[in-house]
Design a protein around this nucleic acid. Structure first.
Lengths: 326, 326
DNA sequence: TCAAAAGTGTTATCCTTACACCCATGT
DNA sequence: ACATGGGTGTAAGGATAACACTTTTGA
């Protein structure tokens, strides 16, 4: 049989929904039983070398098909080609082909519900609960992750150093961008259910009963989708700081608090209110509209809009993150 | 015939050689005539879905095979899949397959000559002369590129804005990171010989006699290799600022001037000597060795080494670029 | 002694951080 | 009136940018 390569495209589509950052997820149906998968996945599909002129066009087509949803901003994330972590065959439906996944990041201001079945918006915190530091250092980090990671590392100094740096143990500073590094460590340590699954599949045996893991380790996803999601979140967190991408997630008019909430929801850290305002105003990226928001409580807030013009005028950087000390 | 996908891997391998930044290039032989190509290319090869476990391992194997050279640091750049810009079939040797190229960036401190035939180190300035602002704004920008680009844009305001921003026309500030954007604009405008070649190939005709272009437009490369190179240079320029990657290009011991020369050669901009020193010293990334360099002229300089330790201790950012005003 | 490159010192300015306080609305 | 969230002012500290100057070598 002629072994070949199949390219799978997956999308991390991010939006804001009442103050929370959410990703578009699907529950694909099993080829035999037609039951929807118990695990969530990202919208995905095979790339057709005949029909599709570029990856990006193919991407947009899939997402619209599967989710009845039109993508706005799109960028390529990474291409994964490791053996043993490819998408299950059934999902792509091509004989004995090796699957290579190209991940994409999409941002949209409208988290509209779709009629498409088994499609919905899920907060990313479900998949990476340890990444949310908005209420301070998450307790589950020290209670669940750290002990297991330390047990895995044993006396291996290299592993210990990686754990400390990635997960901010022993006084190391939290770096919110290293989402992928952290997920990969958990995977390597066998603390992601995906790891056991991939291993048993590559050995050709029946799937192991996955070790019972606390919800602290996050909800697993289909195939290598959690890895792609980690890549997307990390990229987005980095990009926030040097490109005005938050605005792609905001409606046309928004308050500064809503903007701050959005940045916090993505970056997963609490920000200093006054200093955040200053940062935003100094950059000239927004413009007050003079009008005010109908309130939820407290003094009404002024509405602002993103000054799209800046994009065509100067290189426009993003927003620095003025952290709020605990 | 069963149309399929072939994955091509290409490497942008960068090193320093007497103060210049150089990339590893090959001149592949024609399948029929066996004559080496007149155009330079990057080291590349097809990915074997059977034999290779990961892209990165495959990469390292190719580069070593083709150039008798071992890679150090490696990172993935981007995956290109556009129809019409794939590698010519002969190069990869697979029937009617669609070629997708995965580009990689490699950094090495030793620009050793290899015995491998038709392999060598080429300064990147040959391919992107407009990217070198070390001697001030390059004259060829205003003399050759700008007029042609403006002619192409005509009255199209969107194109004009892109040109102005990318190429720093009409008072816009030069942003050294946007290497790919600039190359893509030149390609789109038909000012890269590759564009005419790709167009004639996709129309199935005989290759057009490429329009005679001044050397100001840079030396073309095989396939989409100049695009991959542009991606690599842009990525490296960005990375300089937030990761200590320059040190991967330096020998174990170096002077601060040599370090500055290296940063300047990569970033393509002149830096302010005193302020550069301050930046380097403040970051604690280097350590004086007390010993001095045997000189080429002038006062001997102290030798420094990169403090590798920092990498395992804290997140370690790169070096800011204290620009030297003209 | 002079050119060339290494290396030091100092200042103004701007950005970040931190703290304290006032304002407008709903209940 | 008071709780809630919106919004302002200001001062300290650190980083950057710009300037001028001294030191050590080889020719």
């Amino acid at each position: 049989m002629n072994s070949s390569v199949v390219i799978g495209l997956s999308a991390v589509v991010v939006a804001m929904r009442d103050g929370e950052a959410v990703v578009l997820t699907v529950r694909p149906h099993d080829a035999r039983t037609h039951a929807p998968s118990t695990l969530a996945g990202l919208p995905f599909g095979p790339f057709d070398p005949e029909g599709h002129r570029t990856f990006e066009l193919a991407m947009r087509e899939f997402v619209t098909q599967q989710t009845a949803f039109d993508l706005g901003y799109v960028e390529q994330l990474y291409t994964f080609g490791d053996k043993g972590r490819d998408a299950p065959r059934a999902e792509v439906g091509a004989g004995a082909a090796r699957v290579v996944s190209v991940g994409y990041l999409g941002l949209t201001p409208t988290a509209v519900d779709t009629d498409a079945p088994d499609t919905g918006w899920t907060p990313w915190t479900r998949f990476f609960p340890w990444e949310d530091w908005r209420q301070g250092r998450p307790a589950l980090l020290d209670d669940y992750l750290a002990p297991e990671l330390r047990a895995w590392a044993g006396k291996d100094e290299d592993r210990l150093a990686r754990i400390r740096l990635s997960f901010a143990l022993d006084g190391a500073r939290w770096n919110e961008e290293r989402v992928l590094e952290r997920y990969e460590l958990l995977y390597e340590a066998g603390l992601a259910p995906e790891a056991a699954r991939d291993l048993s599949r590559s050995l050709g045996g029946e799937p192991d009963e996955p070790r019972a893991l606390s919800p602290a380790f996050g909800e697993p996803m289909i195939s290598d989708h959690r890895r792609i999601l980690a890549t997307g979140l990390g990229r987005l967190r980095g990009k926030l700081k040097y490109r005005p991408v938050v605005f792609l997630l905001m409606p046309n008019e928004f308050t500064l608090s809503a903007l701050q909430k959005a940045v916090e929801a993505i970056a997963g850290v609490p920000l200093h209110k006054q200093n955040f305002r200053r940062v935003v105003e100094r950059t000239d990226l927004v413009e007050g509209l003079g009008r005010q928001d109908v309130e939820t409580g407290g003094r009404p807030a002024e509405l602002f809009r993103f000054r799209r013009e800046v994009l065509t005028q100067r290189p426009a950087s993003g927003l620095s993150l003025p952290l709020l000390r605990e």
